[in-house]
Simulated scan of single mutants.
Amino acid sequence: MEAALKTFFSSSRFAVVGASSDTAKFGHKVFVWYLQHNLPVTPINPRVPEVSVKSSNYVTVASPNNLSSPGDTSLSIITPPAATMKVLQEAKDAGVPAVWLQPGSYNDEVMAFARKEFDAAIGGTEGGTSGDEGWCVLVDGEDGLKLAGREWSKL
């Protein structure tokens, strides 16, 4: 999993599929994590035109196909497994190199597809995650940043 983490965080851009303005949702918490770590992040949500974090608004895109540089963007995905499979197919077609399937976003079929089709796919519980529910950027992300040699300062 170390190689996958390094590949994921070697991207120059990031996006959160399922980003939300609702502070109770993990799509919001994961999006905020990227902001707090000063990483360039785009919210992906086809249902709303923007996501709000505190007093700032961030324009959303509807799918990975709408990213400005999908080949340079790693995706964190927080959607139900059926929606995740559709997102993964779009991401593959767009040229996204790496994905992080947050807990609850995958089943065995989704995880197998992700591992087959992407340079790096993070998810599941094997390989040293610190979280009880599987690999999560909120729990394991800082270790991934270190593996990729990324300097960061939490806001």
Rank of each mutant, 00 (worst) to 15 (best):
G128T: 03
S68V: 11
V99D: 08
T73P: 14
K116C: 05
Q36W: 01
S21F: 07
G123Y: 05
V32G: 14
R150E: 00
R150M: 06
G149I: 01
V48R: 11
T42C: 12
D93I: 04
G134P: 04
S20V: 08
I77F: 07
K25F: 08
L67N: 12
G124V: 06
G95M: 09
C136S: 12
V139S: 14
G123L: 07
I122N: 06
D22A: 13
I122R: 09
V87T: 15
V139G: 13
K92Y: 01
S52W: 00
A148D: 08
T84I: 12
W152E: 06
M1A: 03
K6N: 04
L88P: 09
N57M: 00
V61M: 08
F9D: 02
V99L: 07
Y106P: 09
D143E: 13
A24H: 11
L5S: 05
S11K: 05
S55Q: 13
G124H: 11
V48D: 03
K29D: 00
T60A: 03
Y58C: 05
A98N: 06
R47F: 03
K54W: 04
V99W: 09
A91Y: 07
S76P: 13
V41F: 07
L5A: 06
N66W: 06
E133M: 14
V17G: 04
S74N: 08
D140F: 09
S130G: 13
V48E: 04
R150D: 00
L145P: 07
A3Y: 03
Y34L: 10
P49Y: 02
P80V: 00
S52D: 00
P97Y: 04
A15F: 12
P103M: 05
A114E: 07
G131M: 07
A62L: 05
T23Q: 12
G149M: 03
N65P: 01
H28S: 05
H37A: 03
G149N: 04
Y58P: 04
K116V: 01
V99H: 12
L147V: 08
A94F: 08
V96S: 11
W135E: 05
A62K: 15
K146R: 15
V17N: 01
N38M: 06
V110F: 12
G134W: 04
V99S: 12
A83K: 13
V30F: 10
G104M: 12
A148I: 10
E109M: 12
